[in-house]
């Protein structure tokens, strides 16, 4: 069985936002609204006085194994594939936004009719979206099915994003996760996330 996961190394993310741009173009995100990108790199200053560092923190859907967004979804639009990828069927989604309320990782964005109109102009005849719905990262499942990596992973200049199969013991991602060097966000909520982060703080200073 395949169990896709991502590891993000906060030590090597330089905050270039190339992943955001690659994702937006690959998935035709509403780039005109900064709140509606599927992945986002937070830029924060941490520390005191002269001992201040910038931290870049990429976030995206965690493709949880116990996804509350899927539980609350009344239409069945939010589904999980056998390979672990959580996706939204845009034709089934009625846009109640319960999934956005349920997601602890701020991973859901609303695509409105106005966004679709704008999208048709911005992306032209290639624009694939037909109905308004909630949207989120899909781990680029259309690429993954072809054996390619998600767009954000492929474009990452610092190799901060790694993508792999947790069920393959030879996969570097599985090995990093098994080593305990990378940890998921807020596992106590019970979501069983599949995006893991390698901490940067302890290597600083």
């Amino acid at each position: 069985m395949t169990h896709f996961a991502m590891v993000i190394d906060l030590n090597t993310c330089v905050g270039c936002n190339a992943c955001m741009a690659a994702c937006a173009m690959e998935n035709q995100s509403p780039v005109w609204d900064a709140r509606k990108w599927r992945t986002y790199v937070h830029d924060k200053e941490i520390g005191l006085g002269s001992d201040v560092n910038r931290r870049f923190f990429p976030r995206l859907c965690n493709h949880c194994d116990n996804p509350p967004c899927m539980t609350v979804c009344p239409t069945g639009a939010t589904q999980k594939k056998a390979n672990g990828i959580v996706f939204v069927d845009q034709d089934l989604c009625m846009g109640c936004r319960a999934c956005a309320m349920a997601c602890p990782y701020h991973a859901r964005v609303a695509i409105t009719h106005a966004d679709i109109r704008e999208g048709r102009e911005f992306y032209g005849s290639d624009y694939h979206r037909t109905s308004a719905s909630m949207d989120k990262c899909s781990f680029c499942d259309h690429r993954v099915e072809e054996g390619r990596k998600p767009a954000c992973v492929e474009t990452c200049v610092g190799s901060a994003r790694m993508f792999g199969d947790l069920d393959d013991p030879n996969d570097p991602v599985a090995q990093i996760v098994a080593s305990g060097a990378a940890r998921p966000l807020m596992p106590h909520i019970g979501t069983r996330p599949n995006v893991y982060y390698i901490d940067d703080i302890k290597w600083r200073g």
Binding site: C93, M94, G95, I111, A132, S133
Partner: peptide, 8 residues
């Protein structure tokens, strides 16, 4: 407030 009303 639904994004896509017919889907209801």
């Amino acid at each position: 407030h639904l994004l896509d009303k017919p889907a209801v």
